[in-house]
Design a protein around this nucleic acid. Sequence first.
DNA 1: GGGCATTTACTTGTTGCAAACAAGTAATAT
DNA 2: ATATTACTTGTTTGCAACAAGTAAATGCCC
Lengths: 215, 215
Amino acid sequence: MFAVSAEETLRRTQAERTAQSDALMLQSAIRLIVARGTAGTHLKDVGESAGYSRGLASYRFGNKAGLFTFIVHSVGDDWLRELSAAVREKNGLPAILAATDAHYRFVVEAADRIRAFYILWFDSIGPDTGLKNVIANVHQRRRADVEAWIRAGITSGNVRSDVDVRSIAEQFCASIIGIVYQWLLISRVEKHIFELHEGLKRQMISALALNSNKS
Amino acid sequence: MFAVSAEETLRRTQAERTAQSDALMLQSAIRLIVARGTAGTHLKDVGESAGYSRGLASYRFGNKAGLFTFIVHSVGDDWLRELSAAVREKNGLPAILAATDAHYRFVVEAADRIRAFYILWFDSIGPDTGLKNVIANVHQRRRADVEAWIRAGITSGNVRSDVDVRSIAEQFCASIIGIVYQWLLISRVEKHIFELHEGLKRQMISALALNSNKS
DNA sequence: GGGCATTTACTTGTTGCAAACAAGTAATAT
DNA sequence: ATATTACTTGTTTGCAACAAGTAAATGCCC
């Protein structure tokens, strides 16, 4: 029997099936989070608006925390990859300035996935949602990257050697968080957020550049 | 009939009754938010753990958003009052440094109310929870205060006159938000958060002080 | 390669619980 | 004594969570 025409075409492996339903539900969830917030995003809706049954999201992710963790992982990994592509082999101050520019670009692109990602980011602040650990890790990785850039800049001589690396890296990450917060709070973006990123760059230059007025 | 002995002692006005139940439920809600997060805080529990019925919180605040708005108003007003007391008649750089120190003190005191306040602050980031507007207003007021300090510092001559006031004020507020975020994320506070505040002060000094290396 | 057992993907049925509101009772005010 | 305000209890609705079912894909022995 090789006359199974129609059925043959829509036969997919199990891996493909889950990959597809994961992807569709991811998209749906992102749209819902951006539109209604985390509290207004119901697992039921996630499954149904992805074209499946009301129960699939529950079954796949277990609960809301599981769904949110999945989203943060998916988007966060992409994001970190794109960021390190933007920085490439740079180090020291150029790396930090490139990262800041890249961040600005991500934010003004205003892709729903970035917005949803950061909504979840801030949402996870409460106590012991497994999500909190995931995000704390992303945060640590980010800070470690910045520290590495600064240290590399010191050895290659484009950053002055008397800075407190850890402290500057934390300051940088804290500023990014603050900028993102403002972006999510007031939706009219553009110029405003641009200025915040430019200010952050100036601040990093004055903290790290060689020709500084360190008394 | 003036033999109403016992009853006479516990007679309160209606205003006193609501004031007391408001206060008790406020405390309960703060404890619950810190312990279980916003999603895990049920109106039912707020009423009951304050010594009332399961329905009172619903009745008084309407819904969860109403409760959260009430908390942000209560704590936020106290907070702004304490902050402006710490700054007093200072202006310019001294005002900003004093505000930063005061903020550090509030945070390390780690009073539950501050923690709950900021948890709600970050929680309100999603779309159009009436709470978002409340918090956007607090945020605006805060930024306006900082701008006013800087401007006053310029006229009284302790801040250099070529700074972009608005931009610096936003940078400052963004940094504060970022610091608070880190505080909520990693609970071991002390030294770490202290350093972040000190770094912010240094940054503001380099942005605003008169004897600067503006090329 | 074809048919049967196993595993994996997804759906539907059910329970429990909280939010929201309605209708009641108790306390204070006029 | 009546009206108003504070609070409680009853009821509905809707989602999350899980259990038990069906459908699709895979492994296996021939």
